[in-house]
Amino acid sequence: MAQKAKTLRDLARMKRALAPGHRACAGCPFPVIVKLVMSATDYPLVVANATGCMEVTTTIFPYTAWPVNWIHNAFENAAATISGVEAAYKALKRKGKIPADKEIKFVAFGGDGGTYDIGLQALSGALERGHNFLYILYNNEGYMNTGIQRSSATPKYASTTTSPAGKVIPGKLQWRKEITDIIIAHNPAYAAQASPAFWSDLIRKVQKALEADGPSFINVISPCQPGWNYPPDLSIDLTKLAVETKYWPLYEYKNGGWKVNYKPRKPLPVIEFLKPQRRYKHILNRPELIEEIQQEVEKRWERLLKLEEAFPLKE
């Protein structure tokens, strides 16, 4: 049995953070997500990484920040790549070339570009085939590595370089698609949404995902300082505000059931989450657009509560 971290002390003892010296922007929170994922247990890990900020900034040759085995193949194929690694593991174990008691866990990291968009097919295929792996989506709501372009994860009215706020058009005109719902439609062994600010919830979800027998998926919000355009010390605060405003519900799915893990007693209005981000500055004086976003947040939240009520998660 693997050790599971519960406290921050436990996490520190695992000593499995991304090493310092990586080139992520100051304040970028994905290294925090990686630290929490890698330190949640002491299972030996093999990581596959889609092309994107995480891959680029952590492995500039000869300087890699990854303390565990790590493979990058291309942009759209992290799930297919980890499928291959996992298939090799199964085959080599079956043939006695890897000791039967040697347990390795497989994790893929992809951004929203590599997950919602260009990598969706490969991920769907890997989920359907039932490989034993955990896919972590670090979701910064845009193609940030190439310079902040819209993705299908970009929320409505956010300004990006390909959905710029102009004199006529107020940023992106479409709602973000719900990738976690799409993943759940594959009936994975485990799926969840998480936030780094809620680190204890996140590591618990990673532990459940790694213990699940089959594919698992966690969608983690990961603000992008230059892309969302806010002071870099606010990265973690934003991941808290996203949850407290119900913009980013913390929930999980298993065995056909839903559980909302955190229900803010006094939810904050969504403007509290939007305000610090200059990608929304063009709508901050347009209350009707803010209200539209608020209504959408409420709609999605209510839907989630109904799902939980109708199909409660049973362990």
Partner: peptide, 9 residues
């Protein structure tokens, strides 16, 4: 690995 500690930020 990791080798990135050789690179100071």
């Amino acid at each position: 690995v990791p080798t990135s500690p050789e690179y100071l930020t």
